[in-house]
Amino acid sequence: MRPAGLKAATTLLTVGFTCLAALYVNAHVKNAAAPLHPAVVNRPSAPASQPEGSLNLSPSVKTGDVTPVTSTYAS
């Protein structure tokens, strides 16, 4: 095969794979299974009774399914 043909084929393959990769990446930006999972990508829906926001509890804080006796919302 002529060297020019090999060069052209290589270039075509490279450009082709680049285009395919770009198409694939653009089609899969919001990958919910990605190990790094920013909140803006796929924000988990909150339970109906929970206001939206970001709740972060350490293991030393327990939660329960009992009727609360009071609330922090007053001041």
Binding site: P47, Q50, L55, V61
Partner: peptide, 17 residues
């Protein structure tokens, strides 16, 4: 079991907190 306190839409069970 801890004092049940409403905060952020969930019930926390607080003990010495």
């Amino acid at each position: 079991a801890g004092w049940p306190v409403r905060m952020a839409g969930v019930t926390l069970l607080l003990r010495d907190q």
